[in-house]
Design a protein around this nucleic acid. Structure first.
Lengths: 122, 122
DNA sequence: CAGGATCCGTCCGGATACTG
DNA sequence: CAGTATCCGGACGGATCCTG
C-alpha cells in the first residue's frame, strides 16, 4: 500500500484538500459525473486526455475518500455507475468556482503559451 | 522543454485551471506568500514536506504563468522576494474556499484513514 | 464493459555539489 | 541565500492481456 513520507497535517485545510482532490483529474471527473457521465467508458470519452488506467485509479481513490459511490448492475455486459455522495456534492460549488476562474484566466494563458507573434513568420 | 501530449482545451475552465494550479503545492505556496513568507527559504520552512528543489520548480512555473512576481536584491547573501501579481490575487478567494472545504472535510478524512478503533488496542 | 495484473520505458524528485 | 546541474532509484503511467 501507499505510505506517506510525512504525516498529514489535519489542522491545515489546504493540506487536507490537496491530499484528497489535489490531482490533475479529480475535479474533472467529479464535474463530468455531476453532468451525467456516470460510467467509466463515458468518462474516458468525455475527459480530454485521461487514460482508462488512470481513471480507474482516480475513481478508486474518490470512492475511498467517500466522494463517490458506485452501483454495480449485474448485467452482461457489466454496467457500473458512479454517483456523487453528499460529501462529493459539497465540492460542486468549489469546482464551479475553479472552472469560472479558469475561464477568466484562459486568455492570459493563451497569450503566455503562444507568445505574441508580432511579426508574421515566413 | 516540456511538450504536452495533448493540446490544451481553452474552452474548458477546469482544464485551464488544472494546467496552471493543478499541482499538490501551488495553492500552499500562494497561500504562504500571501501570509508574508516571501522568501524561498521561508517557504521551505513553512510548507510541510516540500523540498527546495520542488519549490524552485513550482515558483518558476507560477512566475511563468504570471501568478507570482519576483524582486531580486543584490545583497550578500542574496535576497529574493516573491509577491502575488494581480492575476495571483484573483486566486485568493478560491484558495480560501478550498482551505475552508478542507477544514470541513478533515474529520471525515481522519475517520477514513485511521479507521474506527471501536475497541481499545492492548 | 469494468477492472485487475503485468511488463517496461519515462519522468519525477531526493541528494549532492557548485556558482554568483 | 538563490538557483542550476548531475546522478540515480523509485514511482507513475501507457500498452497489453485476462477474467467475470
Amino acid at each position: 500500500m501507499y505510505q506517506r513520507k510525512i504525516p498529514i497535517d489535519y489542522s491545515c485545510g489546504l493540506s487536507i484538500a490537496m491530499e484528497v482532490v489535489g490531482s490533475k483529474w479529480k475535479f474533472c471527473i467529479l464535474d463530468e459525473i455531476s453532468k451525467g457521465a456516470t460510467r467509466p467508458r463515458d468518462l474516458v470519452k468525455e475527459i480530454n486526455g485521461i487514460s482508462k488506467r488512470v481513471l480507474q485509479n482516480q475513481l478508486k481513490e474518490l470512492e475511498m475518500h467517500d466522494l463517490l459511490g458506485k452501483i454495480v448492475y449485474s448485467e452482461v455486459p457489466l454496467r457500473v455507475e458512479y454517483y456523487l455522495t453528499p460529501a462529493g456534492e459539497t465540492l460542486m460549488p468549489l469546482i464551479a468556482a475553479v472552472n469560472k476562474w479558469g475561464e477568466g484566466y484562459a486568455p492570459r494563458l493563451k497569450e503566455i503559451l503562444e507568445g505574441e507573434p508580432t511579426t508574421v513568420p515566413v
